[in-house]
Each structure stands twice: as structure tokens, then as C-alpha cells.
Write a protein that binds this DNA or RNA. Structure first.
Length: 576
RNA sequence: UGGGGGAUCGUACAAUGGCAGUACGCCAGACUCUGAAUCUGGUUAUCAAGGUUCGAAUCCUUGUCCCCCAGCCA
């Protein structure tokens, strides 16, 4: 039971954290005060299965499932699958996996709009019987012409006044497959002169012969979003139907449809601003394009803002949920700084990642006064933030590798690390001093450094109290394991890649350095048994995880999740 | 140009007629066997102009700017 106790505490903490008010929770509080909806709170997360979920969906998921959790209500998972030409079970599967991974559960409340096709059809028949819907024979082009413009009202369809009997007959024959694709539609009779386009006799059904991922070829007519969504919400007893800002204009139509069916409940649609993030794109259209054009390796490319990409990159669901709790919910368009996401990530990883030592760009060090063949077993702390993570032994020997970046032949004043004649500490090991540089006589490249060590500093402490300005990570040359490490950076090189004001396309802003594959990296031997899902901090470098797709052939491949904050890099950049 | 929304530190979110606050970022310092983490301090904002009021980010008026809408997409 101890793990569930811990879970209880986490949940309690989470609830406290997200007890922060936002305008949607204010509305719900008010509804609860007035006993609206019989004091129920029931939300839903309604993705269309036409792409993979991204961090923007995570905001919506945390909002909807979070509200259900905090108000002791329910949240349904509903696939909005009314357009078979774009949807696929691959997406359904990935969406389930991603929502679950974030830590949310919908029990047996997994629904599909396609579950309601028959009911939706019957309600449409009812609307025809009410004289409030008609079958229209206009072509798509003609429909557009009749719709009018921003300033001019539309003109009624010439088929507006068909008899109820004829409409009933035509609609049933639409269903039966008597007419070709696109030849007829079912339209609601509302107001062609409405300043709101959505009310200009909107289309409810179109004829479309496409294989549906669940209903196959059972149907050749499919309901439109505006009609299907509100009725689906009502059928499920949703109380608060939360969606993004672009649907604000659709609310009158949402309400209109539900007003026609007295026996159905009437959920309240509430709109909030979708998430935008700096240095990335968030539209499914663009993400799909990146995938299809091979600009990334797939939906789960670790550079993608998709949940599957972030998972492969090493993001934790806790970090993502913490981020979603912090960004707040409002109605104004906004773009959240990627730095906040990375902060939430580091905050979580710092608590849980095991510390290890790995050298990305090895520089050989020979410790001349260290006995040949001797091996030291040194104690290293696995996680200073978590004593229960324990310690491990790290082997030390005469030849080691340090990071090339940790040595400079002619260092500037701000450089604390190793330099000729200078002494530094090797983490958990010894103080070493650089005595000479061994160079390739032809190229002048540094091949190795000759150092001496002070045996009295074993473990990293100096008995005489002398200080060093730097502590370096290292690996024993003969014990180290080779690995590949993928260094990831921002996918785009500008803060707002969607900005087309320079006449450029977002793809023009792809960051050419967003991935760097490092081969020949040397990692400490304890990492040889690393498994997918393990989280590590490579000390002084960043957080890394095993790449779930790249490590299958027995060789180790790590992904850099995020760097550590880095004062020195900042100083270097500032000097340039 | 019709309709629907929105404007608060660099960024995001609060303050719902009563001291404009929090987080991230940034800057400075302390500490440090990770130039990490942690800690301390600092930085900067109510779109504009009028009005109501003892008192306005909040209410009223006028204006400015930004976003969304003319798919048989969602």
C-alpha cells in the first residue's frame, strides 16, 4: 500500500498546485453554487484521430482531466472521427498511449463520434420533420457563391423550400448511396443573412465514400463537426465542453442545434487560448508536413513537440503536467517561452535522474606518476537530491578521458578548468596537475595531456585544505564503454517560425544544428546495462536517456534530453 | 469593410472598485567535489485619451492595435 499512499500524497499535492484559479474554474465554481447540471462536472477530451498528440494537446488534456479530478467529476476520451478521409487507427492507438502516459485514465468512457452515427442520423431526420433541415443539390462551388461575403448576406438555396416528405426521401436515399459524392448535402435552415457565417444554413451531412477506420463502408454520408460535436457532448452528459478560441464563432450554432432537441442536455461550450511555444510549430498540418517530407524521422522524432517525440527525448509526464499547470489558462493569444518548459523538465529530472559520468569528446590524460596497471575503486554518489539512490564504485586508472572542452592551452581569465601548470579535481577521485601537452607533430593537434596526481587527495578532498577552481568529470580509458550520443537542440532557429512576414516559410527556419550525432563517446562502465526508460544526468553536461528506437542492435545510443544550465557557455557567448 | 474575441513586467498567469503580485527569463551576490542544484537581492508592466469615484488594471465613453471566421476540415 505504500506506493498508493505516495500516490495519494502526489495527487493531493497536485490538487493543491492546480487549485490556482482560472476563468474556466470560476465558471464551474459558479455553476456548482447554483446547482446547475445537478452539481455534476463532466468534461471530455475530443481529439480527431488524424495525427499524433502534441504539447498543445497536453494543455487541453491536463485542463479537462485536471478539472474532472479536482471537482470529483469525470472526463471522457472521445475520438472525433467524422471525416474518414483523414483518420486512421494508427492515430487512435497513439492518442490512447499518449493520454495514458501523461497519467490520465478514462476508465470505460472511451467513445467515438462514429458510435453515434445512427443516433445522429435519427436526430437529423427529426430536424427535417421539424421543417428545420433540407436536402440541398447545390455543388460545392455554388454553395460558396450563395454564402455571401463578410459584408454581404448570403442568398437562400433554391432547394430551401422542398417538402418535408421530399427531404425525408432524399436524405434516406443519400444514406442508401443513391447519389454520387458531393452531389447533395443536408443543411440546417437557420439564417442566410446572419453576420456569422456558421449560421448561414450550415451543412450537416455530406456524401463521402471513404473507408472509415471503424465503420468501414457502412456509411456513405458523414456528419459535419458542428452537428456531430454538440450532439455527442449532449449524449455523453458533458457539462462543460472546453475547446479552443477558433470555435468561439461556432458557439451560436452549437447552442442552436441543442436547442432543437429538448430531450438532450445542453452542455456549455467554453473557449480558451491554445498553447503556442517559442522555437517550434504546433499545427497538425505543419507537423504532418515535417513527417511526410522527411524533414524529421517521424512523429516521434525527439525534436518534435509531439508527446511521443518528447517521450523519446526523455521528457517525463510529470514535467509536462507541471508545465501545463504553470502556464495558466486564459483567452488571449500567447506564446510561452520554451525556457519555462525546460525549467519544468530540469526541475523534475534533477530530483530523479541518477548521476553518472560520460565524456562526449574524449581527451586522453596520462597520469605519469600513477602506477601502471593499478586500479582504484572510488565511491560516487548516485543522486545528491535523493540519498536512497545510494552510491556506486567507479574505476580509476593511469589513463583516463576528460572532455576536450575542459582543457585550454591558453585560457582566458574566466576559464576555471584544466590548463598547463594548473591543478583541478577529478570528481570523486584525485587532484591532477597538467604538466605537458603531447601534440601530433604533423597537425599540431593535441593527442594527450601528461599530468601528475596527488595521492593524498584520494576521494577528492585535499588534507592540506588547498582549493581548486574546477571539478571535472572523467572516465577510465580502459574501463569506459563506447556509446553514441545524439545531441538535440531546438528544431527551429527563430523564436516564431510561423512568422511569414519576411516572405519565408516556416521550413526555411529549420535549425541545421538541431541534431548532432556523437560517436565514440566514452561512458562509465555502470552505464553498460542502461535500459530504455532510465534517466541519467551526465554530470556537468545534461540529462540523457537511452534512445528507445536506436539501441536495439546491442550498441548504446543516448539522447540528450536537455542540457544543464551552463554559466560558462553564457560567458563564452558573451565574449564573442 | 460584417461578425466574434483579446490587449497587465522580456514571456506567461494573478489581482474582479482598496498597497499591481507570482513563476520563468535576465542581472548581481552567497554557497558548492556538477560553472548544476540550492539560497539572497535586483530589474522591468496595466494599449491610448477622456470621464465616474475619496480611490480605477477593474466601471463608462471614444480611439488604436492584435487574433479568428466566407471547407461538403476539425
Amino acid at each position: 500500500m505504500s506506493s498508493s499512499d505516495a500516490g495519494l500524497k502526489d495527487t493531493a499535492d497536485k490538487n493543491t498546485a492546480s487549485a490556482v484559479s482560472n476563468f474556466i474554474r470560476d465558471i464551474i465554481d459558479e455553476d456548482l453554487c447554483t446547482c446547475k447540471n445537478g452539481s455534476r462536472v463532466h468534461t471530455r477530451f475530443p481529439p480527431e484521430p488524424n495525427g499524433y498528440l502534441h504539447i498543445g494537446h497536453a494543455k487541453s488534456i491536463c485542463l479537462n482531466f485536471g478539472i474532472a479530478r479536482d471537482y470529483k467529476g469525470l472526463c471522457n476520451l472521445r475520438f472525433d472521427d467524422t471525416n474518414p478521409s483523414k483518420e486512421d487507427t494508427e492515430y487512435v492507438d497513439s492518442i490512447r498511449e499518449d493520454v495514458r502516459w501523461l497519467g490520465f485514465d478514462w476508465d470505460d468512457r472511451e467513445f467515438f463520434a462514429s458510435d453515434y452515427f445512427e443516433k445522429l442520423y435519427q436526430y437529423a431526420v427529426e430536424l427535417i420533420n421539424l421543417g428545420k433541415a433540407f436536402v440541398c443539390d447545390l455543388t460545392p462551388d455554388q454553395v460558396r457563391q450563395h454564402r455571401g461575403s463578410l459584408t454581404e448576406p448570403g442568398t437562400p438555396s433554391p432547394f430551401y423550400s422542398r417538402s418535408i416528405e421530399e427531404n425525408l426521401d432524399l436524405f434516406s436515399r443519400m444514406r442508401a448511396g443513391d447519389f454520387p459524392d458531393g452531389s447533395r448535402t443536408l443543411r440546417a435552415k437557420i439564417d442566410m443573412a446572419s453576420p456569422n457565417f456558421n449560421m448561414r444554413d450550415p451543412i450537416m451531412y455530406r456524401i463521402l465514400r471513404a473507408d472509415h477506420h471503424r465503420t468501414g463502408n457502412l456509411w456513405c454520408i458523414y456528419p459535419m463537426y458542428d452537428y456531430a460535436h454538440c450532439v455527442s457532448d449532449a449524449l455523453e452528459g458533458i457539462t462543460h465542453s472546453i475547446c479552443t478560441l477558433e470555435f468561439e464563432d461556432h458557439r451560436p450554432l452549437y447552442d442552436w442545434f441543442l436547442d432543437q432537441f429538448a430531450e438532450l442536455g445542453h452542455p456549455q461550450q467554453i473557449e480558451f487560448a491554445r498553447l503556442n511555444l517559442t522555437y517550434t510549430v504546433m499545427s497538425k498540418r505543419r507537423l504532418l508536413e515535417l513527417v511526410q517530407q522527411g524533414l524529421v524521422s517521424g512523429w516521434d522524432d525527439p525534436r518534435m513537440p509531439t508527446l511521443s517525440g518528447m517521450r523519446r527525448r526523455g521528457y517525463t509526464p510529470e514535467a509536462i503536467c507541471s508545465f501545463c499547470d504553470r502556464i495558466g489558462v486564459a483567452k488571449r493569444d500567447s506564446t510561452v517561452d520554451m525556457a519555462l518548459l525546460e525549467h519544468c523538465l530540469r526541475e523534475d529530472l534533477n530530483k530523479r535522474a541518477r548521476r553518472v559520468m560520460a565524456v562526449l569528446r574524449p581527451l586522453r590524460i596520462i597520469i605519469d606518476n600513477y602506477p601502471e596497471g593499478q586500479i582504484d575503486e572510488l565511491h560516487a554518489i548516485n543522486n545528491p537530491e535523493d540519498q536512497s539512490a545510494g552510491t556506486r564504485m567507479v574505476p580509476f586508472s593511469r589513463e583516463i578521458f576528460i572532455e576536450q572542452d575542459d582543457f585550454m592551452e591558453n585560457p582566458p581569465k574566466e576559464f576555471f578548468r584544466l590548463a598547463p601548470g594548473r591543478e583541478v579535481r577529478l570528481r570523486y577521485a584525485y587532484f591532477i596537475k597538467c604538466e605537458s601537452i603531447e601534440k601530433d607533430t604533423a597537425t599540431g593537434d593535441i593527442i594527450a595531456l601528461h599530468c601528475t596526481y596527488d595521492p593524498a587527495t584520494r576521494g577528492g578532498d585535499s588534507p592540506d585544505g588547498r582549493k581548486v577552481k574546477a571539478t571535472l568529470h572523467w572516465v577510465s580509458a580502459s574501463h569506459a564503454v563506447e556509446a553514441q550520443v545524439n545531441l538535440y537542440d531546438k528544431l527551429f532557429s527563430v523564436s516564431d517560425p510561423s512568422d511569414t512576414s519576411e516572405g519565408k516559410d516556416y521550413k526555411d527556419y529549420l535549425n541545421p544544428y538541431s541534431i548532432e550525432c556523437m560517436n565514440g563517446c566514452r561512458i562509465e562502465p555502470s552505464l553498460a546495462s542502461a535500459k530504455p526508460g532510465d534517466l541519467y544526468q551526465f554530470e556537468r553536461l545534461g540529462y540523457f536517456c537511452i534512445d528507445s528506437a536506436g539501441s536495439s542492435n546491442g550498441s548504446l545510443v543516448f539522447n540528450r534530453t536537455v542540457t544543464l544550465r551552463d554559466e560558462w557557455t553564457k560567458i563564452k557567448k558573451g565574449k564573442k
